[in-house]
Protein backbone atom coordinates (compact mmCIF):
# COMPACT_ATOMS: atom_id res chain seq x y z
CA UNK A 1 0.00 0.00 0.00
CA UNK A 2 1.48 3.33 -0.96
CA UNK A 3 1.63 6.27 1.38
CA UNK A 4 -1.03 8.07 -0.58
CA UNK A 5 -3.41 5.11 -0.41
CA UNK A 6 -2.78 4.80 3.28
CA UNK A 7 -3.69 8.44 3.74
CA UNK A 8 -6.91 7.91 1.84
CA UNK A 9 -7.88 5.20 4.24
CA UNK A 10 -7.32 7.61 7.05
CA UNK A 11 -4.38 5.94 8.72
CA UNK A 12 -2.70 9.33 8.80
CA UNK A 13 0.61 7.84 7.83
CA UNK A 14 2.92 10.59 6.72
CA UNK A 15 5.89 10.11 4.47
CA UNK A 16 8.50 7.86 5.95
CA UNK A 17 10.84 9.43 8.49
CA UNK A 18 13.61 7.18 7.31
CA UNK A 19 16.43 8.51 5.20
CA UNK A 20 16.22 6.19 2.25
CA UNK A 21 19.80 6.25 1.16
CA UNK A 22 19.03 4.21 -1.95
CA UNK A 23 16.54 6.65 -3.36
CA UNK A 24 17.79 9.95 -1.96
CA UNK A 25 19.16 12.48 -4.37
CA UNK A 26 22.80 13.34 -3.76
CA UNK A 27 23.30 15.75 -6.65
CA UNK A 28 23.85 18.64 -4.28
CA UNK A 29 26.50 16.68 -2.44
CA UNK A 30 28.29 15.88 -5.69
CA UNK A 31 28.03 19.48 -6.86
CA UNK A 32 29.46 20.87 -3.63
CA UNK A 33 32.16 18.20 -3.31
CA UNK A 34 33.38 18.82 -6.84
CA UNK A 35 33.67 22.56 -6.32
CA UNK A 36 34.84 22.51 -2.71
CA UNK A 37 36.72 19.25 -2.10
CA UNK A 38 37.33 20.08 1.57
CA UNK A 39 33.61 19.37 2.05
CA UNK A 40 34.63 15.73 2.47
CA UNK A 41 36.79 16.51 5.49
CA UNK A 42 34.05 17.42 7.96
CA UNK A 43 33.96 15.09 10.97
CA UNK A 44 30.95 16.76 12.54
CA UNK A 45 32.63 18.21 15.64
CA UNK A 46 30.26 21.16 15.71
CA UNK A 47 32.95 23.82 16.13
CA UNK A 48 31.48 25.84 13.28
CA UNK A 49 27.97 25.76 14.65
CA UNK A 50 29.24 26.61 18.13
CA UNK A 51 30.97 29.79 17.01
CA UNK A 52 28.39 30.81 14.42
CA UNK A 53 26.81 34.24 14.90
CA UNK A 54 23.76 33.46 12.80
CA UNK A 55 23.21 30.16 14.59
CA UNK A 56 22.69 32.00 17.86
CA UNK A 57 19.68 33.77 16.46
CA UNK A 58 18.03 31.24 14.21
CA UNK A 59 18.29 27.70 12.94
CA UNK A 60 21.48 27.77 10.95
CA UNK A 61 23.78 24.88 11.58
CA UNK A 62 26.57 24.15 9.17
CA UNK A 63 27.50 20.87 10.78
CA UNK A 64 23.99 19.51 10.41
CA UNK A 65 23.77 21.00 6.94
CA UNK A 66 26.84 19.11 5.78
CA UNK A 67 25.50 15.86 7.24
CA UNK A 68 22.13 16.32 5.57
CA UNK A 69 23.71 17.15 2.21
CA UNK A 70 25.75 13.97 2.47
CA UNK A 71 22.55 12.02 3.03
CA UNK A 72 20.70 13.74 0.21
CA UNK A 73 18.23 15.48 2.53
CA UNK A 74 18.26 19.00 1.20
CA UNK A 75 14.65 20.08 1.64
CA UNK A 76 15.34 21.30 5.14
CA UNK A 77 18.25 23.43 3.99
CA UNK A 78 16.57 25.60 1.40
CA UNK A 79 15.84 28.45 3.84
CA UNK A 80 18.61 27.71 6.26
CA UNK A 81 21.40 28.19 3.76
CA UNK A 82 20.37 31.80 3.17
CA UNK A 83 21.06 32.82 6.75
CA UNK A 84 24.86 32.69 6.70
CA UNK A 85 26.64 36.06 6.91
CA UNK A 86 29.90 34.67 5.48
CA UNK A 87 31.78 36.22 8.41
CA UNK A 88 34.33 33.39 8.39
CA UNK A 89 34.58 32.65 12.09
CA UNK A 90 33.74 29.00 11.41
CA UNK A 91 36.65 28.81 9.00
CA UNK A 92 39.05 29.87 11.75
CA UNK A 93 37.63 27.30 14.15
CA UNK A 94 37.36 24.25 11.90
CA UNK A 95 39.90 21.62 13.02
CA UNK A 96 39.74 19.90 9.65
CA UNK A 97 40.41 22.96 7.52
CA UNK A 98 37.08 22.79 5.72
CA UNK A 99 36.58 25.89 3.60
CA UNK A 100 33.25 26.44 5.29
CA UNK A 101 32.31 29.68 3.60
CA UNK A 102 32.61 28.18 0.18
CA UNK A 103 30.63 25.14 1.31
CA UNK A 104 27.76 27.49 2.16
CA UNK A 105 28.12 29.43 -1.07
CA UNK A 106 28.25 26.27 -3.19
CA UNK A 107 25.32 24.71 -1.35
CA UNK A 108 23.19 27.78 -1.99
CA UNK A 109 24.21 27.72 -5.64
CA UNK A 110 23.50 24.00 -5.95
CA UNK A 111 20.06 24.34 -4.43
CA UNK A 112 19.20 27.24 -6.71
CA UNK A 113 20.26 25.19 -9.69
CA UNK A 114 18.40 22.16 -8.43
CA UNK A 115 15.22 24.19 -8.14
CA UNK A 116 15.63 25.35 -11.72
CA UNK A 117 16.28 21.80 -12.88
CA UNK A 118 19.77 22.73 -13.95
CA UNK A 119 21.61 20.29 -11.75
Amino acid sequence: MSVRQANRFGFGINQSRQINYDTSDRKVRDYVTLREPSFRLCFACGGCSATCTAGEHISFNLRRMITLIRRGEIDLLRDEVTRCMLCGKCMLVCPRGVNTRNVVAMTAEAIRKLDRNEL
Binding site: C45, G46, G47, A50, T51, G55, E56, N61
Partner: peptide, 12 residues
Protein backbone atom coordinates in the same frame (compact mmCIF):
# COMPACT_ATOMS: atom_id res chain seq x y z
CA UNK B 1 31.92 28.14 27.05
CA UNK B 2 30.54 28.13 23.52
CA UNK B 3 29.89 24.73 22.01
CA UNK B 4 27.37 22.99 19.85
CA UNK B 5 25.49 20.18 21.48
CA UNK B 6 25.75 18.23 18.26
CA UNK B 7 23.44 15.50 19.46
CA UNK B 8 20.71 18.01 20.24
CA UNK B 9 21.68 19.90 17.09
CA UNK B 10 21.73 23.28 18.77
CA UNK B 11 24.39 25.71 19.95
CA UNK B 12 24.91 25.66 23.70
Amino acid sequence: IKVEDTLAGRPL
